[in-house]
Amino acid sequence: MTAELIVDARNATGECPVWNTAEQALYWVDIPAGRLYRWSAATGQTQSWQAEEMLACIALHPAGGWLAGMQSGIFHLQPQDDGSLKAERLAQVEHARPHMRFNDGRCDRQGRFWAGSMLLDMAAGTAAGALYRYDGQLQQVLDDLIVPNGLAFSPDGRTMYLSDSHPSAQAVWAFDYDTDSGTPHDRRLFIDMKQHPGRPDGAAVDVDGCYWICGNDAGLVHRFTPDGRLDRSLAVPVKKPAMCAFGGANLDTLFVTSIRPGGDISDQPLAGGVFALRAGVSGIEEPAFIP
């Protein structure tokens, strides 16, 4: 299953791909650049818009545009014709320390928005990160995380997955999830990623309930069954795949964003690009935010 480069985006940290079914287009962000991107499946053309601070994760907003986790809080973003993003801050976050931002995030099956926070200095290895829920009010639900990542929900919404991608952690946990209250409980180890190639980064879930997660540093995207068994690993031509999402006309294409690190990357010239893979299975349409 050869990975096809669809956009040579050269993103510093390409993250949070979301397929917009109505537009048949893929959206994603470059976190440190604060840019939102759109790729049209019909035309192959790419557009982008600039935010005023780091932009980490997005979900469709019912009023148009995007709900977004950024540096200072949760925003409603609306792309403008001049390439800017009109931003309305809906909730300010009180980070545990200075120099933090939101990271991975998405909506649960009921339309609540979830996002994790982290120190900008990932190398510090400090567990200052937390996981937040936004449903009109912003509430911290979990803490003691270094780099929260891999957030995903089972098809029935009753299992929540969360990873910590810091090299000292490299774990994916599963939680029972109360769909009425939006509360995770009974946390347990789902995958010890130290037993598999790559650190656990962004994730997606397919119609079979299998969990797809990017193996950062290993150039792989892994599929795990609901009981935590490794089912398959697909290769991408870069070392740092960051997050994956299902899209395409039949939701059977796996799109993968990636990271373009500094230094000599002559061995991976496509780093920071966006790739498409035939995964052999369909995904689930991404829920929009429900205020």
Rank of each mutant, 00 (worst) to 15 (best):
M1F: 09
M1C: 11
A3D: 06
V7M: 08
T13G: 01
E15Y: 01
C16M: 13
P17N: 07
L26F: 00
V29L: 05
D30M: 02
I31Y: 04
Y37H: 15
A41C: 12
T43G: 12
W49L: 07
W49K: 08
M54V: 09
C57F: 06
A59I: 10
G65Y: 13
Q71Y: 04
S72G: 14
G73R: 12
H76M: 10
H76K: 11
L77R: 03
D82L: 02
K86M: 07
L90W: 06
L90T: 03
V93G: 07
E94R: 13
M100W: 00
G105I: 05
G105D: 07
R106W: 00
D108N: 09
D108V: 07
G111R: 01
R112C: 09
F113S: 08
A115T: 08
M118G: 04
G125H: 05
Q137P: 00
L138A: 12
Q139G: 05
L142E: 15
L145R: 09
I146F: 03
V147S: 05
N149A: 06
S165E: 00
S165Q: 02
H166C: 02
A169R: 15
Q170P: 02
A171W: 01
A171L: 14
Y177D: 11
T183A: 03
P184K: 09
P184E: 07
F190W: 10
D192V: 09
M193P: 00
M193W: 07
H196D: 00
G198P: 08
G198A: 09
P200Q: 11
G202S: 10
G202Y: 05
A203M: 12
V207R: 15
G209Y: 02
Y211K: 06
D217Q: 12
D217M: 04
F224C: 06
G228V: 05
G228R: 05
L230C: 09
V236Y: 10
P237S: 11
P237C: 11
V238H: 01
V238R: 00
K239L: 12
K240D: 00
P241A: 03
M243W: 03
C244K: 10
F246K: 12
L254N: 08
T257M: 04
P261L: 07
G262C: 05
G262N: 10
G273P: 07
F275H: 10
L277V: 10
L277Y: 11
R278A: 15
G280A: 13
S282R: 15
A288I: 01
F289R: 05
I290S: 14
